[in-house]
Amino acid sequence: MKRIGNPWVLAGMLAGIVLLPKGVDSQTPRTAALAAFDTIQTVLQHPRCQNCHIPGNAPLQLDAGLVHTQNVQRGPAGKGAPGLPCSTCHGVTNPPASYGPNTPPGAPNWSLPSPEHKMVFIGLSKADLCATIKDPKRNGNRNLAALLEHVSHDKLVLWGWDPGVGRAPVSVPHDAFVASFKTWMAGGAPCPAGGEAKSARLR
């Protein structure tokens, strides 16, 4: 994984400051923001999120992060391979409870990030993760406000807290996650110093 140089982090920070939503306390200490990023990392690198935020083209599944069976591929638009779109198995909602465990969960727009904006979360260090989500080239051209909107309301993101029968939800409550995101932004969306990758599982 290529490490991202400081200029990008700086640019991202500036963008964050400029684009802070109204009503957020711009005096929130940077230390609080950095602490909030720990929570953000916990969420983004939870299996419910990172299993599809991958560097390669084969998504993962289950808490163990095993390669998705069926040879599932990201595909040209992140929606699966031609002939095997994600929607073949994944509906726009989780299946009814009567379908039992291990049935494919669902949410609107079930997909991976596109190949152009892979937004890799898995295996990244705190610093790299932070740089990644702030980089418009990798995050789908989102500024921080758009990111906040995304993590607050996107139905596929929200699925992480309602993942269906037999699947652990993201370990941090969603409102706590959003609050942390706001704290982080309010503190200038700072990125922690570089560190080792959290996990070596990069498939």
Partner: peptide, 24 residues
């Protein structure tokens, strides 16, 4: 039906395309 869906989406699939579409 899976093959028909593949050919609809990709009329000249490669071996890798077939493997990606039909391994389910």
């Amino acid at each position: 039906l899976a093959a028909a869906a593949l050919l609809q989406a990709k009329p000249k699939p490669s071996d890798a395309d077939v493997d990606a579409a039909l391994s389910g």
